[in-house]
Amino acid sequence: MPTSIGLAVHLAVSELQRRGIDSTPLLVRSGLSEAALASHKRVKVRAAIEFLERVALALDDDWLGLTLAADFDLRELGMLYYVAASSERFGDALKRLDRYERIANEALDLRIVQGLGGRVGLFYNGVPRHVDRHLMESFAVTIVRLCRQLVGKRVVPLSARFMHHRADGRKIQQFLGCEVSFDADGDEIRFDASVMDLPVLGYDPYLSDLMVKSCEDALVRHAPGISPFRTDVENAITPLLPHGKAQAKTVAEKLNLSERTFARRLAAEGLSFGEILDRMRRDLAISYLEQKLRASDITWRLGFQQPSAFTHACRRWTGKSPSAFRSRPWPA
């Protein structure tokens, strides 16, 4: 079961206390423990979602996610705040959130797509999306607040959309300052492309390096399937892909390992070179298709010799041809 640092749960407990309402019964019914929260242990995301729904009813606040996210100290995000705040530009901060958000919430998957506009897609892994309203809205509000604080401007998104239903979205629309739609086929915040190039106030390259190192270490501890060696392999593969040289022997040489030692290191972690390469190609292909790159360009970028080879791989990954996948309603 995916877990998180439980920031929304802590904020909700504080709101209950402020209103003079005992949080204990609501925590127990949601499968949460006061003792665990007091010791800052991680909580199950599904339990957090259930707790927020119960708190919303107890407080008669149908916009609880917005209420909680609207004014808390963003530094409570912990290292995620500081790794974003030490970035040079807002686009860089989003890319770091894209990579490191699993540290705070293993169920949340951010996808940053830069093209005609800066698009932030939000997805759940291991948690059914239809059970949630408040947590997803709190994520969206927090991202917009973070943008405004980091660049020192009241940035207004171009649009926002959510999969869940709302009969009247004027409250969150007023906060975000943009059109907000519900009953959508995905969760997304869209910024103007120029927002990505806005400088982050107080950019500190030394703090930046320190926070990236700390987050990489934390990612290994909190993100299942991620290992330092796998990251090294992926980093070695990336520049080789467009030249068709992403082969085990070449990557082993870049890592100063013999081919036999390289294979043994992978096997020790339950990995194979082919698995890592295929997963990287899949993730990059989806990203490139969403960015509307031509199939011939993607074929070259992924190191395939022929367009037909890429088309075959795309069908295996997504069940669709590149053109069919590109024309589907975003996100998949």
Rank of each mutant, 00 (worst) to 15 (best):
M1D: 08
S4W: 01
A12T: 01
S14F: 02
R18S: 14
R19H: 14
G20I: 07
V28W: 01
E34R: 15
E34S: 15
A35I: 12
S39K: 15
K44P: 07
V45C: 05
F51T: 03
F51V: 02
F51L: 09
R54H: 12
Y81M: 01
K95A: 04
A104T: 02
A107I: 00
I112V: 15
I112R: 08
G117H: 13
L122D: 00
N125W: 10
G126C: 11
G126F: 11
E137C: 04
A140R: 09
R145W: 04
C147I: 05
Q149L: 09
R154G: 00
S181H: 13
S181I: 06
D183V: 01
D187G: 04
R190C: 12
F191G: 07
G202H: 12
Y203V: 05
D204M: 04
P205C: 03
V212W: 01
V212L: 14
A218C: 03
R221H: 11
D232H: 13
E234P: 04
E234S: 11
I237N: 11
A246W: 06
L255V: 04
L255Q: 02
L266P: 08
L271G: 03
R281N: 03
D283F: 03
I286G: 02
D297C: 08
L302F: 05
S308W: 02
A309H: 13
C314V: 13
K320L: 15
K320P: 00
S323G: 06
F325Y: 15
